[in-house]
Design a protein around this nucleic acid. Sequence first.
RNA 1: GGAGGGGUUCCCGAGUUGGCCAAAGGGGGCAGACUGUAAAUCUGCUGGCUACGCCUUCACUGGUUCGAAUCCAGUCCCCUCCA
Length: 369
Amino acid sequence: MQVKYHLIKNDPHTQARAGILETTHGNIETPVFMPVGTQATVKTVSPEELKDLGAEIILGNTYHLYLRPGHDLIAEAGGLHKFMHWDQPILTDSGGFQVFSLSEFRKISDEGVLFRSHLDGSSHLFTPEKVMEIEMALGSDIAMAFDECAPYPCDVKDVVNALERTTRWAARCKEAHHHEDQSLFGIIQGGMIRELRERSAKEITALDFPGYGIGGLSVGEPKHLMYEMLDYTIPLIPEDKPRYLMGVGSPDCLVEGVARGVDMFDCVLPTRIARNGTVFLPTGKLVVRNAEYARDFAPLDKDCSCYTCQNYSRAYIRHLIRCNEVLGIRLTSIHNLHFLVNLMKQIRLAILQGGFQDFREEFFAHYMV
RNA sequence: GGAGGGGUUCCCGAGUUGGCCAAAGGGGGCAGACUGUAAAUCUGCUGGCUACGCCUUCACUGGUUCGAAUCCAGUCCCCUCCA
């Protein structure tokens, strides 16, 4: 089946909305936060633990899985779900972000992107058609179109080029995509320029995808700019399609993204900062690795219901992280993922109960950015 | 008892043709960053101060010298080999 978005409730004061996204591997309650599992694993956290902390859908990455172990191998294993033992929805990113993050290893042409593997230096041409072939082989529920994510800051002409190319590639992706159990999402680009955002939104939505990614944001620009771009972009996306703000995941950005009409988010932030000794709390970030928690025998968050907070102290977690023990980063990863997943569940509940605006104010009354 | 080697800043460890040495490098410690993952990574600080300068420091004591972690003498420890 193709994904289907059901709008359940609009917030009366903001653009926030609650809905359900139906997929082959089950329903997703939106707005939702999606943990990132680039290499067919959310680093250090098992699928069972992801389910326990409430994750509904996770990501995989086309570029990384193509290079290793190879999409053919994963297809042979029975697809990504089976390969990694995750039976809930999966979204695969297309490698478009690697055009940005691995910019020193690639050359862009209209045909596609020639990557020099960061693993062994070998060359690989990613065309929209190739990316579709890979994503279909992976068998994710949602495949992202191959886009060009422009950096920030960026010359206007380069933003325009990326935008135009992204539109052309989106059309080619759509043409090449044939998979009845996988839905292809288009991606809107346009840098930090209102007119270009609007233009990209119009061009991409004209191609009629079952969902839309908003890309090219959270690439180093100030937050107010990102929020502005969302304000310009989201009203141009059909109401009956899910909107996915790609790569965004700080708690404050999630709340503000939802307020602007975003349904889906993904981000490496919770797992990355977890591995570096930082955790999310309702009051803001806390570097549990720091000396001031050496003798703090309380949980990370006394009101948190996650596995970590139910069983371990700040002092113990700090000790593990300082000793480089894997359990330390597993515990902080579990907590951070739970924090964001749970934040979205609270947000959704608030929307359903008509109290999102109050929730938002309450959140920022406590959360120090 | 004899022969040889060595004691450096929290730790390990460079540095001994004397000045460019508050002293390389690593570890540890302290702090910061991290937003579709080249990240369990990266960056900064790590003797003291009334700081573009001053003070204390390279086992200890004394000496040579304009100047010593570096040279000399003695002392105290440590290691290896031979008795």
